[in-house]
Simulated scan of single mutants.
Amino acid sequence: MSAQVQYSEFGGPEVLSFVEVPMPSAPSDGVVVETRAIGVNPIDSMLRSGARSSAPLRSPRVPGADAAGVVVAVGADVDDWVVGDEVVVQNGHSTYATHIVAPASRLVRKPAGVGWDEAAAIGVPASTAYQALRTLGVEVGSVVLIHAGSGAVGQAAIQFARNWGATVIATGGERNQARMGELGAIPVEYGPGLLQNIRAAAPGPIDVVLDAAGTDEALEASFALVSDRSHIGTVVVGARAAELGIQAWSGGNPLPLTPEELRLRAESYAVTLELIELGDFEVEIGARYPLTAAAEAQRASMSGEHRGKIILHPSA
């Protein structure tokens, strides 16, 4: 048998239930992956609560977009994958499960030197950060301001920008200053005088801003520092992007990602996995929960009590 977490109504974490279901079979162009680790993202809770709009609930829905595991069944038309391959599921869906079905085209090979938790953690955060920074044109010599630099997206963005030869200033809370510094950013604490503190950390011009905080304080500081708002991007307040005149990717943005943005997000998986294996990219795991405790994991995700990525373990 297989098992999954599902919900049949919008609401708090208590609407999630752990149920046994029949083992899925592989479609002709896809595979079945037995999960080893599953990533928890804030969007999972937003969709479950109804805070982020989605299709009407006409049948039980399984949360999740990120997972890594082992191929256990292969469709008749699949040539590139075999049973036993260790993979990361790219842009997955319904991943809060012991077994998931995925198109063969959305699998990325997991390097032997990358752990299951790290492999499952990179999906949404790393692909978002990678695509946003590429779209903003970050390159060698760029000066980049990242708001909420200690979150999963922020930590990924700091590391990509530093690997590409950029100078990074990152904002965050007091307890996260050391972590942002460890990753190579110049840390600046939230609070009174944010704009002046950023200017003190980067007396020269700032080229681009990636906002993963969405606060008025962060946005106002960004507008004061970067006159061309097309060089400011957000991944959290997309619904306000047109009004503010900034770029946005997901985060409530009514406009879908462009084909080029989707290509960049897909490209990020192999790039990130290689960097992890080389020791040039770190994934901070904040907490681990058994799949049966998915409700507790989502509560922790929304409370912000853990820094770093929250992971579900199907076998725990």
Rank of each mutant, 00 (worst) to 15 (best):
M1S: 13
A3L: 05
Q4N: 14
Y7L: 07
V21K: 07
P22T: 03
P24S: 13
P24H: 13
S25Q: 15
S28A: 15
G30F: 01
V31N: 02
V40M: 05
P42E: 07
I43W: 07
S45K: 07
S45L: 09
S45C: 13
A55W: 13
A55K: 15
P56S: 05
G64T: 01
A67C: 11
G69S: 08
G69C: 05
V70E: 11
V72K: 02
V72T: 08
V78C: 10
V83I: 11
D85S: 09
E86G: 10
V87P: 01
V88Y: 01
V89F: 03
S94T: 08
S94G: 13
S94H: 09
Y96L: 00
A97H: 02
T98D: 01
A104F: 02
S105Y: 12
S105H: 14
V108H: 08
R109I: 10
G113T: 11
G113V: 08
A120T: 01
A121C: 06
P125R: 04
A129E: 04
Q131I: 07
A132K: 00
R134Q: 14
T135V: 15
L136P: 03
V138F: 04
V138D: 00
G141L: 08
V143K: 09
I146R: 00
H147V: 06
H147N: 08
G149D: 02
S150E: 06
S150D: 06
A157N: 05
I158Q: 04
I158W: 05
Q159K: 09
A161D: 00
R162T: 09
R162A: 11
N163M: 12
A170P: 06
A170H: 02
T171D: 04
N176F: 11
A178T: 14
R179K: 14
R179D: 08
M180D: 00
M180F: 07
L183R: 04
G184R: 07
G184L: 05
A185H: 01
I186S: 08
I186D: 06
P187F: 04
P187N: 09
V188Q: 00
Y190M: 08
Y190T: 09
P192W: 08
G193L: 09
L194G: 04
L194A: 04
L195I: 14
Q196R: 11
R199K: 13
A201I: 06
A201V: 06
A202N: 06
A202I: 03
P203H: 11
P205L: 12
A212C: 13
A212Q: 03
D216C: 13
F223A: 08
L225R: 01
S227N: 15
D228A: 13
V236A: 10
L244T: 03
Q247A: 11
Q247G: 11
W249C: 07
G252H: 12
P254R: 12
L257A: 10
P259W: 09
E260P: 09
E261H: 12
E261L: 12
L262R: 13
R263T: 15
R265L: 09
R265D: 02
S268A: 15
S268Q: 06
L275H: 12
I276F: 04
E277K: 12
L278F: 15
L278H: 15
F281S: 00
V283E: 00
R288E: 10
P290N: 10
L291E: 02
T292P: 02
A294Q: 03
A294H: 01
S301F: 05
E305K: 13
K309R: 11
L312C: 05
L312Q: 01
H313Y: 14
P314F: 00
A316S: 15
A316N: 14
